[in-house]
Every structure is written in structure tokens, then in C-alpha cells.
Write a protein that binds this DNA or RNA. Sequence first.
DNA 1: CCAGACGTTGTT
DNA 2: GTCTGG
DNA 3: CCAGACGTTGTT
DNA 4: GTCTGG
Length: 254
Amino acid sequence: MCYDIKASYEAQLKRAKRRGDKRAIEEIIENLIPYTDLPIFHASGFKHPEMLIYPDASTDYPIVATWGMVPPWISDQDQIKSIWNKTLNARGETIFEKPSFKTAALHNRCLIYIDGFYEHHHFDNKVYPFFIQRQDEQPIALAGLWNEWENPANGGKMTTFSIVTTKGNSLMSKIHNNPKLKGPRMPLILSQKLEDEWLKPIVNNDDKLKIKEITEASPSVELKAHTVNKLRGKDYLGNTECISKAVNYKELIF
DNA sequence: CCAGACGTTGTT
DNA sequence: GTCTGG
DNA sequence: CCAGACGTTGTT
DNA sequence: GTCTGG
């Protein structure tokens, strides 16, 4: 599962920067960043933040997109409201089957670069938020699906995305403290090699199988986690830098 | 055939 | 748009 | 996902 | 307990 993320400028621009094209970076900062909610120290998917994603059609130059997939057959604002809280994540195992995701799974895959994500741990009837990041604290590349929706009423365009999830690893199991095999979920984290595989167009069945393989392999990236301040309700601090900082809960036994 | 959905998460 | 359930 | 409401009347 | 809103 993945409903809460941190996405700094540095993380979001990581892929654009790898070519060392300074002019391109300036352009992105000038023309795209103003339309995003960056920097995001914490955002809930349920607030549908605007971020940068790297689509297959333009692998090194990002576009602005809203978190919460709006499938092409949606016809008005009311339908958007009823669907986009349910399409923040897409189960990797079924992206080629679900009506909301199947077209995007074939033709509209993307990468989302974040610093880390947040998960809620339950202990003694209370909820403790954790921030999860790479052990080396480098940005994380997530597998995503995107779509451009056109409003039939006025031709207005809206680009949206969903984060692909997969089976959770042992750290996730511990945070979710779930003994069941059915197990916790986590976002699909891609190694550098798989990032490019994920964006490669599908032209035959082998390509499709390759993508399926990626969604089924458990992420090999080493992660670490610490408790942070509340992410929901009255005690929520909002989108402030300190929200991903470690906070000690004395009563919590983890 | 038409109507209605179309999605994800987890059980301290 | 396309699939599922009745 | 978590937090917060969960109801009625009539009008600041 | 269960549903809605963010």
C-alpha cells in the first residue's frame, strides 16, 4: 500500500538530471514546477497532489500529473470524485485485467521519483506513522501508470497517475504487524536496471511478460524506517519539512 | 439483452 | 470503453 | 489509509 | 459498528 509520500525537488528531478542537461532542468523548474505542489514533505494521495512523473512517451523529461488515476471513460467531475480515491494504487498482479488500468498497463507506464513513503503501524489501539526510505537515503523510483483524461464538456485535459503495488517485504510486514500470509502491500520499487525496462514500449507478448515479471518480483532495494508525527486528524502538522523527521513514542514497542 | 461497475487496504 | 451480473 | 460523524429544527 | 470525507 502507498497513500502517503515525500517528494522533494531533488528526488523528483533526479531522472531529468542524469543527462546533465542544465537548460532542460531550468526549463522544468520554470515551466512545470509552478504547476505542482512541490516540495512535498508529506502529502496524502487523498488530497490528490500535483507532481512530476516520467512517462514512457518522454522518459527523461517529466510531465505534471495528479495522483489518483482517472480512466478515459469517465465523463464528468462527479465521476472523477467517485473514482480517484480508489485508484491511488494499482495492484501489480492485475494491472492488465482491471478496466481502470489495462490500457495504461499496455501503453502508459511511468516512473515516480520520491524520497520515501509513510505507513501506519497499529499498536495498543493507537496508530503510529512511520517514514520509510532507502537505507542510503537516495531517491526511490516507483512504478506507475498514467493517463490523460479529456473533459468532454470543455476539452480540458487532466493528466493523472496511480502507484503500482506489490507484495510487502519483511520490513513492511513488521510495520503492518500482520501475521497473515495474505500479507502487507508496498509500492513497486524499481532498481536502476528495471526503471528503463518499465518504460520500454510493449510491442509483443514477450514485452508484456517482461512487465508482468517486474510486477511479480519483490523489490530488492534495502529500506529503513522510523516513527514520525501524525499524518491525519487534528494533530497533523501539514506539509512542513519536519514531518519526516524521527519522533520517539515512549509507549511504542516496535 | 440492459444496468451498473470500473479500486485498494488489512485483522494490534 | 468494456466487462460482469442478473 | 485514518479521523470523525453518526440528527433535527429553522436561520447568524 | 459503519459510513463518509480528505
